[in-house]
Computed example of a mutant assay.
Amino acid sequence: MIKNLLGVIDATTYREATSDLTINRSMAAIPFAGRYRLVDFVLSNMVNSGIESVAIFPRYQYRSLMDHIGSGKQWDLNRKRDGLFFFPSSNFEEEGSFKQFRNHMDYFYRSTQKYTLITNSYTVCNVDYKKILKRHIEEECDITEVRHLGKSLEMYILETSLLIDLITAQDATGYYSIQDVVQDHKHTFKICDYEYRGYVKVIDSIGSYYKHSMELLDPTVWKQLFLQYSPIYTKVKDEPPTKYTKDAVVKNSMIANGCVIEGHVENSIISRGVKVGKGTFIKNSIIMQKSVIGTNCVLDAVVFDKDVKVENNVSLQGSKFSPYVVRKGTLQGALMKS
């Protein structure tokens, strides 16, 4: 039954509240949990549910996303038939995902799957779509909306033929997205709700990104998301194990491969290839890939994007409600203390 389900990832959304992390990438490509990107979760959910054809529709700054996903090999989507499709937007001015879909209608016309799953790219969860499709069919729904604690997760299942009709009739109906259809009470479609009760976090601001990242340092929370029978896949990088010198101290932290840790790291998430200098103290922080932290620095409640360089003797402090964010490739020097 699940082989009748087409996967569509709507990566057209932009949130001003994430701008410090999306100036060079789309929301789908935001790093999360040390070695993953946000898109990894929805992609993994789809392939774990047996979906064999997935289309991604990005709109902004999608080079990083394309580099991360590649041919889809890590998700077993590099296939001769079906597999992974990438459809960038040709017009940034167009509003609504239906217009992005309409630019690539051949994909929908040629698809053999009877049903389509549409989902956003920034909801972190581990969901089995087989159960949702089964309920959708049993209750003869036109559109099923997945919800959590009463709030929409912007995940929808409907027949592919209905989706095609909605896309092509957009000018007449005024529906710019599937959300517009669900929220309009004037139509005659049967809209069903599916309440998902597992782990769900929506990453749509720096605050939510920091909060939900830090929560993963609690093993009980981690186990709710990373399930043994439903793994989360990501791009594999062949890097050496992390090196810890004799002066290194690490407490309650996630440290990815390829790092060199000479200082003190506590209650933090350190991505691949990060270097932490001797005498440096890092706590309650997120340090992304290939950042370099000098010696005798103090970093508390900071979020560093990729390739940030911090000179020696620098002190930076944020708070759990407002972390200190440093954009990708930025140099933080001793004269910039705060």
Rank of each mutant, 00 (worst) to 15 (best):
Y60S: 08
K134Y: 08
K99D: 05
E138G: 00
D82W: 10
F85R: 10
F85I: 04
K73H: 12
D193T: 11
A55Q: 05
E159I: 01
G96I: 14
E95K: 04
I178H: 02
Y176K: 15
D180A: 11
E93I: 11
E195C: 00
Q74V: 02
F98N: 00
T188P: 03
S53I: 09
V146C: 03
I167E: 06
I143Y: 08
E159K: 13
Q74N: 13
L77H: 01
S64N: 15
H68N: 10
I178T: 09
I191K: 02
S71G: 04
Y129E: 07
R79C: 13
S152F: 13
I167K: 03
V127A: 14
T112V: 09
R102D: 09
Q113V: 07
F85W: 07
T173H: 05
A55V: 14
G150H: 03
Y62M: 01
R135L: 08
K186N: 10
Y176D: 14
Q179F: 10
L65I: 02
R147Q: 10
I132M: 01
I167L: 06
G174K: 04
S53D: 13
T119S: 14
G174A: 14
D142N: 13
H104G: 00
Y122T: 00
L84N: 07
E159G: 10
R102V: 02
D165H: 09
Q74Y: 14
Y175C: 03
D76I: 01
K186G: 12
D106A: 02
T188E: 06
Y115C: 00
S64F: 06
N126D: 09
R63S: 06
E52K: 12
E52I: 08
T173Y: 12
K114R: 13
H187Q: 09
K186H: 15
R147N: 07
K130D: 08
S111A: 15
A169Q: 12
I69R: 02
Y194C: 04
I132Q: 13
I178N: 01
I132K: 05
L65C: 02
N91I: 02
M66R: 14
Y196A: 03
M105D: 06
C141W: 09
T116L: 11
Y115H: 11
T144E: 03
M105L: 14
R63D: 07
I164Y: 03
D193S: 15
I157S: 12
E94S: 09
C125R: 13
D128H: 05
L153D: 06
T160L: 07
C125L: 11
H187I: 08
Y196V: 06
Y122L: 00
Y175T: 02
T123A: 08
I51S: 08
